[in-house]
Protein backbone atom coordinates (compact mmCIF):
# COMPACT_ATOMS: atom_id res chain seq x y z
CA UNK A 1 0.00 0.00 0.00
CA UNK A 2 1.38 3.36 -1.00
CA UNK A 3 0.32 6.74 -2.24
CA UNK A 4 1.90 8.01 -5.42
CA UNK A 5 1.30 11.66 -6.32
CA UNK A 6 2.43 12.48 -9.82
CA UNK A 7 2.66 16.07 -11.10
CA UNK A 8 -0.57 17.29 -9.53
CA UNK A 9 -1.66 20.81 -10.49
CA UNK A 10 -4.81 22.69 -9.60
CA UNK A 11 -5.72 25.95 -11.27
CA UNK A 12 -8.06 28.56 -9.78
CA UNK A 13 -9.48 31.85 -10.92
CA UNK A 14 -10.90 34.85 -9.20
CA UNK A 15 -11.78 38.25 -10.55
CA UNK A 16 -9.23 40.13 -8.45
CA UNK A 17 -6.21 37.81 -8.92
CA UNK A 18 -7.03 36.39 -12.31
CA UNK A 19 -5.83 32.85 -12.98
CA UNK A 20 -3.44 31.21 -10.52
CA UNK A 21 -2.32 27.78 -9.38
CA UNK A 22 -3.15 26.44 -5.93
CA UNK A 23 -0.54 23.74 -6.46
CA UNK A 24 1.69 23.09 -9.43
CA UNK A 25 3.37 19.90 -10.56
CA UNK A 26 3.53 18.37 -7.12
CA UNK A 27 4.99 14.85 -6.98
CA UNK A 28 5.84 12.67 -3.97
CA UNK A 29 5.31 9.21 -2.61
CA UNK A 30 4.13 8.00 0.78
CA UNK A 31 5.05 4.45 1.73
CA UNK A 32 3.24 2.13 4.13
CA UNK A 33 3.92 2.91 7.79
CA UNK A 34 5.26 6.32 6.85
CA UNK A 35 4.17 9.82 7.84
CA UNK A 36 4.80 12.32 5.04
CA UNK A 37 4.34 15.98 5.94
CA UNK A 38 3.71 18.91 3.65
CA UNK A 39 5.30 21.87 5.41
CA UNK A 40 4.60 25.35 4.15
CA UNK A 41 3.41 28.83 5.07
CA UNK A 42 -0.26 29.79 4.92
CA UNK A 43 -1.52 29.86 1.36
CA UNK A 44 1.36 27.70 0.10
CA UNK A 45 -0.92 25.11 -1.50
CA UNK A 46 -0.90 22.39 1.18
CA UNK A 47 -4.68 22.19 1.55
CA UNK A 48 -5.22 22.28 -2.23
CA UNK A 49 -2.81 19.36 -2.68
CA UNK A 50 -4.51 17.34 0.04
CA UNK A 51 -7.95 18.11 -1.39
CA UNK A 52 -6.88 16.89 -4.81
CA UNK A 53 -5.36 13.70 -3.36
CA UNK A 54 -8.51 13.08 -1.31
CA UNK A 55 -10.68 13.47 -4.47
CA UNK A 56 -12.51 16.57 -3.24
CA UNK A 57 -11.06 18.56 -6.14
CA UNK A 58 -10.28 17.12 -9.52
CA UNK A 59 -6.72 17.92 -10.63
CA UNK A 60 -6.21 20.31 -13.54
CA UNK A 61 -3.20 18.21 -14.52
CA UNK A 62 -1.36 15.18 -13.16
CA UNK A 63 -2.86 12.56 -10.94
CA UNK A 64 -2.36 10.24 -8.02
CA UNK A 65 -2.88 6.60 -7.23
CA UNK A 66 -3.65 4.87 -3.96
CA UNK A 67 -2.42 1.31 -3.93
CA UNK A 68 -2.41 1.43 -7.71
CA UNK A 69 -5.98 2.79 -7.97
CA UNK A 70 -6.12 5.98 -10.03
CA UNK A 71 -7.98 8.69 -8.11
CA UNK A 72 -9.18 10.41 -11.29
CA UNK A 73 -10.34 7.35 -13.22
CA UNK A 74 -11.78 5.43 -10.30
CA UNK A 75 -12.48 7.85 -7.46
CA UNK A 76 -15.16 5.64 -5.87
CA UNK A 77 -12.69 2.80 -5.24
CA UNK A 78 -9.98 5.21 -4.16
CA UNK A 79 -12.34 6.76 -1.61
CA UNK A 80 -12.84 3.41 0.11
CA UNK A 81 -9.14 3.43 0.93
CA UNK A 82 -8.72 6.95 2.24
CA UNK A 83 -9.76 8.85 5.31
CA UNK A 84 -9.70 12.66 5.40
CA UNK A 85 -9.58 14.88 8.43
CA UNK A 86 -9.27 18.63 8.40
CA UNK A 87 -9.31 21.21 11.14
CA UNK A 88 -12.25 22.80 9.35
CA UNK A 89 -14.22 19.55 9.06
CA UNK A 90 -17.57 19.83 10.80
CA UNK A 91 -20.00 17.39 12.31
CA UNK A 92 -23.77 17.14 12.16
CA UNK A 93 -24.87 19.05 15.25
CA UNK A 94 -28.27 17.40 15.60
CA UNK A 95 -26.93 13.84 15.42
CA UNK A 96 -25.21 11.89 18.17
CA UNK A 97 -21.63 10.67 17.79
CA UNK A 98 -22.84 7.10 17.37
CA UNK A 99 -25.34 8.12 14.67
CA UNK A 100 -22.65 9.97 12.75
CA UNK A 101 -20.31 6.99 12.89
CA UNK A 102 -23.10 4.65 11.79
CA UNK A 103 -24.01 6.96 8.90
CA UNK A 104 -20.47 7.25 7.59
CA UNK A 105 -19.80 3.54 8.12
CA UNK A 106 -22.84 2.66 6.07
CA UNK A 107 -21.89 5.21 3.39
CA UNK A 108 -18.61 3.25 3.17
CA UNK A 109 -20.67 0.10 2.61
CA UNK A 110 -19.62 -1.60 5.88
CA UNK A 111 -21.72 -4.60 6.96
CA UNK A 112 -23.82 -3.74 10.02
CA UNK A 113 -22.20 -6.24 12.43
CA UNK A 114 -18.66 -5.22 11.45
CA UNK A 115 -19.67 -1.57 11.74
CA UNK A 116 -21.14 -2.02 15.22
CA UNK A 117 -17.96 -3.66 16.48
CA UNK A 118 -15.82 -0.98 14.86
CA UNK A 119 -17.88 1.80 16.46
CA UNK A 120 -17.55 0.24 19.91
CA UNK A 121 -13.80 -0.21 19.54
CA UNK A 122 -13.34 3.39 18.34
CA UNK A 123 -15.47 4.76 21.17
CA UNK A 124 -13.25 2.90 23.65
CA UNK A 125 -9.98 3.71 21.88
CA UNK A 126 -10.73 7.44 21.67
CA UNK A 127 -12.39 7.47 25.11
CA UNK A 128 -15.73 9.16 24.51
CA UNK A 129 -18.12 6.42 25.62
CA UNK A 130 -20.01 8.68 28.03
CA UNK A 131 -20.72 11.10 25.17
CA UNK A 132 -21.40 8.55 22.44
CA UNK A 133 -25.14 9.08 22.57
CA UNK A 134 -25.10 12.82 23.15
CA UNK A 135 -25.89 15.16 20.30
CA UNK A 136 -22.80 16.80 18.87
CA UNK A 137 -24.16 20.30 19.58
CA UNK A 138 -23.62 19.62 23.30
CA UNK A 139 -20.07 18.25 23.02
CA UNK A 140 -16.86 20.08 23.93
CA UNK A 141 -14.30 20.97 21.25
CA UNK A 142 -12.00 18.17 22.38
CA UNK A 143 -14.72 15.51 22.21
CA UNK A 144 -15.81 16.80 18.81
CA UNK A 145 -12.26 16.34 17.60
CA UNK A 146 -12.33 12.75 18.83
CA UNK A 147 -15.60 12.12 17.03
CA UNK A 148 -14.13 13.67 13.88
CA UNK A 149 -11.15 11.34 14.08
CA UNK A 150 -13.41 8.34 14.63
CA UNK A 151 -15.53 9.45 11.67
CA UNK A 152 -12.53 9.70 9.38
CA UNK A 153 -11.20 6.23 10.24
CA UNK A 154 -14.51 4.40 10.68
CA UNK A 155 -13.84 2.32 7.53
CA UNK A 156 -10.26 1.59 8.61
CA UNK A 157 -8.65 3.38 5.63
CA UNK A 158 -5.17 2.49 4.44
CA UNK A 159 -4.34 6.13 3.72
CA UNK A 160 -5.01 8.92 6.23
CA UNK A 161 -4.97 12.48 4.97
CA UNK A 162 -4.77 15.05 7.76
CA UNK A 163 -5.02 18.74 6.93
CA UNK A 164 -3.43 20.75 9.76
CA UNK A 165 -4.83 18.29 12.27
CA UNK A 166 -3.82 20.06 15.48
CA UNK A 167 -4.80 23.61 14.48
CA UNK A 168 -7.10 25.11 17.08
CA UNK A 169 -6.62 22.32 19.59
CA UNK A 170 -5.44 22.79 23.17
CA UNK A 171 -2.29 21.07 24.41
CA UNK A 172 -4.05 17.88 25.56
CA UNK A 173 -6.15 17.53 22.43
CA UNK A 174 -3.10 18.19 20.22
CA UNK A 175 -1.16 15.57 22.17
CA UNK A 176 -3.99 13.06 21.68
CA UNK A 177 -3.95 13.84 17.97
CA UNK A 178 -0.19 13.17 17.79
CA UNK A 179 -0.72 9.91 19.64
CA UNK A 180 -3.34 8.96 17.10
CA UNK A 181 -0.95 9.64 14.20
CA UNK A 182 1.77 7.54 15.80
CA UNK A 183 -0.67 4.70 16.42
CA UNK A 184 -1.84 4.76 12.80
CA UNK A 185 1.76 4.69 11.60
CA UNK A 186 2.46 1.75 13.90
CA UNK A 187 -0.49 -0.03 12.29
CA UNK A 188 1.24 0.28 8.90
CA UNK A 189 -0.97 3.01 7.46
CA UNK A 190 0.19 5.67 5.01
CA UNK A 191 -0.20 9.11 6.55
CA UNK A 192 -0.12 12.35 4.61
CA UNK A 193 -0.42 15.47 6.69
CA UNK A 194 0.02 19.18 6.27
CA UNK A 195 1.32 21.56 8.87
CA UNK A 196 2.88 24.96 9.19
CA UNK A 197 4.52 24.35 12.56
CA UNK A 198 8.10 23.14 12.61
CA UNK A 199 7.77 21.33 15.91
CA UNK A 200 4.86 19.23 14.70
CA UNK A 201 6.71 18.37 11.51
CA UNK A 202 9.81 17.35 13.44
CA UNK A 203 7.81 15.33 15.97
CA UNK A 204 5.63 13.39 13.56
CA UNK A 205 6.98 13.25 10.05
CA UNK A 206 9.32 10.62 8.66
CA UNK A 207 9.74 12.61 5.48
CA UNK A 208 8.86 16.17 4.58
CA UNK A 209 7.96 18.14 1.49
CA UNK A 210 8.58 21.88 1.72
CA UNK A 211 5.92 23.70 -0.24
CA UNK A 212 5.60 27.35 -1.14
CA UNK A 213 3.64 29.31 -3.74
CA UNK A 214 2.05 26.06 -4.88
CA UNK A 215 5.36 24.35 -5.72
CA UNK A 216 7.16 21.57 -3.93
CA UNK A 217 10.61 23.02 -3.26
CA UNK A 218 12.28 19.99 -1.72
CA UNK A 219 11.40 16.59 -0.39
CA UNK A 220 13.16 14.12 1.92
CA UNK A 221 13.92 13.26 5.54
CA UNK A 222 14.85 16.13 7.83
CA UNK A 223 18.47 15.04 7.69
CA UNK A 224 18.42 14.97 3.91
CA UNK A 225 16.90 18.46 3.81
CA UNK A 226 19.56 19.79 6.21
CA UNK A 227 22.21 18.26 4.04
CA UNK A 228 20.67 19.70 0.91
CA UNK A 229 20.56 23.24 2.27
CA UNK A 230 23.54 23.14 4.58
CA UNK A 231 21.43 24.36 7.50
CA UNK A 232 21.43 22.97 10.98
CA UNK A 233 17.77 22.96 11.93
CA UNK A 234 14.43 22.60 10.22
CA UNK A 235 13.39 26.20 10.71
CA UNK A 236 16.50 27.44 8.90
CA UNK A 237 16.05 24.84 6.18
CA UNK A 238 12.48 26.03 5.68
CA UNK A 239 13.30 29.76 5.63
CA UNK A 240 16.24 29.17 3.28
CA UNK A 241 14.17 27.19 0.79
CA UNK A 242 11.15 29.51 0.84
CA UNK A 243 13.22 32.70 0.51
CA UNK A 244 15.31 31.27 -2.32
CA UNK A 245 12.13 30.27 -4.15
CA UNK A 246 10.66 33.75 -3.64
CA UNK A 247 13.83 35.39 -4.94
CA UNK A 248 13.90 33.08 -7.95
CA UNK A 249 10.28 33.87 -8.67
CA UNK A 250 10.94 37.62 -8.38
CA UNK A 251 13.80 37.34 -10.87
Amino acid sequence: MSLLVNGVSKRFYDKARGEFYGCREISFEVKPGEVYGLLGPNGAGKTTTLRVVSTIYSPTAGGASINGVDIVRDPQTARKMLGFLSSTSGLYERLTAREILTYFGRLCDMPQDVLNKRIESLIDALEFRSYADTRVAKLSQGTRQKVSIARSIIHDPLLMILDEPSTGLDVLAAYAMHEFVRQERADGKCILLSTHTMSEAEKLCDRLGIISEGRLLASGTIEELKELTGKSNLEEVFVHLVRNAAQAAAL
Binding site: R51, S54, T55, I56, Q76, T77, R79, K80, L82, F84, S86, T88, S89, G90, L91, Y92, E93, F104, L107, C108, D109, R151, S152
Partner: peptide, 14 residues
Protein backbone atom coordinates in the same frame (compact mmCIF):
# COMPACT_ATOMS: atom_id res chain seq x y z
CA UNK B 1 -20.83 26.28 5.64
CA UNK B 2 -20.61 23.83 8.57
CA UNK B 3 -17.70 21.97 6.96
CA UNK B 4 -19.57 18.68 6.73
CA UNK B 5 -19.60 18.64 2.94
CA UNK B 6 -15.98 17.59 2.50
CA UNK B 7 -16.18 14.41 4.62
CA UNK B 8 -19.42 13.56 2.86
CA UNK B 9 -18.18 13.88 -0.72
CA UNK B 10 -15.12 11.71 -0.12
CA UNK B 11 -17.25 8.74 0.90
CA UNK B 12 -17.61 6.08 -1.82
CA UNK B 13 -21.20 7.19 -2.47
CA UNK B 14 -21.45 9.12 -5.72
Amino acid sequence: ERGTLEPLVITPVS
